[in-house]
């Protein structure tokens, strides 16, 4: 049977999904990018190959999304390289055709997607500032001596969430320290943080938008039940968290790879091929474009980053 691979390489985590022709997820994995997107994808492919061992699935098309989509697209010979906003929208509307609003909070970005009759009609994504995203929560969890995984459960125990300034991560952090020192309990502070993330989200990304149910909440932070509850309290509607919510980008781009109808050779052997990138500053003008060259087995296969033709690197 034909299979389609979707890979979502974010700043913090790398997600992979293999779907069959009926859009069922037959293999999936979620692991940390650890600042090395190519290495993470190699690890990801090994895991997925293992999961598919006893299944009769042949991957005929690959889609990539996330901030390293271009690099990984070249590496895996992808048919579709799509931005994460579209990928997420496609993924969610495939699983929840009636969805009207998508909240999404990831490692370093957050976005809102508004959908009407299955079409995206509006979206917004955070700019300039990463306040209220996953990395903020995990650094604060570390400060409080709890793991980010238990964060949500602890928050649910609180009766009186502490008020924490939500506008800016730096202010939120000083607020948190101050509140802890004057004697607020840990669960109140943790619940307060969850609330702060939601307030920040609704005030920035959600500004001027209407949240019509059904609302789906996804991205890594959606696994945090404390944030989910804070969202429900704030918008006054039920918020759905899909069990595959953290994989939605990868699932979406796999669906797009299938829809594209383009089939390209793919083999899990990619995981064993040596890939290497080098960067240099183009010296030809004062723009000093940072040019990236990708090598496969020491052979140059692609390059990008140049603003003009002077910086084009010839591929033999």
């Amino acid at each position: 049977m034909k299979g389609y691979l979707g890979i979502d390489i974010g700043s913090i985590s790398t997600k992979g999904v293999v779907i069959d022709e009926d859009l069922n997820i037959v293999a999936s994995e979620y692991l940390w990018t650890e600042g090395d997107p190519m290495g993470a994808v190699k690890r990801l492919l090994k895991v997925l190959e293992n999961q598919l061992k006893d299944k009769d699935i042949k991957i005929v098309s690959v889609g990539t999304t996330g901030s390293a989509r271009k690099l990984i697209g070249v590496m895996t010979n992808a048919s579709v390289v799509k931005n994460e906003i579209t990928a997420h929208a496609v993924g969610t509307t495939t699983l929840h055709p009636d969805v009207n609003t998508i909240f999404e909070i990831g490692g370093q970005d957050s976005k809102i997607i508004i959908i009407e009759n299955g079409y995206v009609t509006d979206y917004a994504m955070n700019t300039l500032c990463a306040a209220g995203t996953g990395s903020f929560l995990s650094s604060q969890a570390h400060r409080l001596g709890v793991t980010v995984e238990e964060f949500g459960e602890i928050a649910l125990k609180s009766q009186h969430p502490t008020n924490i300034a939500a506008r800016c991560t730096v202010f939120a952090e000083s607020d948190l320290v101050h509140k802890a020192q004057i004697g607020h309990s840990k669960e109140d502070i943790i619940a307060g943080l969850c609330k702060a993330v939601v307030t920040n989200y609704l005030n920035n990304i959600g500004k001027g938008k209407k949240f019509r149910p059904p609302i789906v909440f996804q991205g890594g932070v959606s696994k945090n039940v404390g944030v989910k509850k804070a969202f429900e309290d704030a918008v006054g509607h039920e918020v759905i968290v899909d069990k595959n919510g953290h994989l939605m980008g990868a699932f979406g781009v796999a669906v797009l790879a299938k829809k594209s109808g383009i089939e390209k050779d793919f083999s899990f052997d990619v995981a064993d091929i040596k890939f290497r990138t080098t960067g240099f500053d183009c010296p030809k003008c004062a723009n000093h474009c940072e040019i990236v060259c990708v090598f496969k087995d020491d052979k140059l296969i692609d390059s990008w980053g140049n603003k003009c033709d002077n910086g084009t690197v010839k591929i033999n």
């Binding site: 799509k82 931005n83 994460e84 906003i85 579209t86 995206v120 009609t121 509006d122 979206y123 994504m125």
Partner: peptide, 11 residues
Amino acid sequence: IKTRLEAFYDM
């Protein structure tokens, strides 16, 4: 910027 523009175009 490109990510947002691409998504805008898709939409």
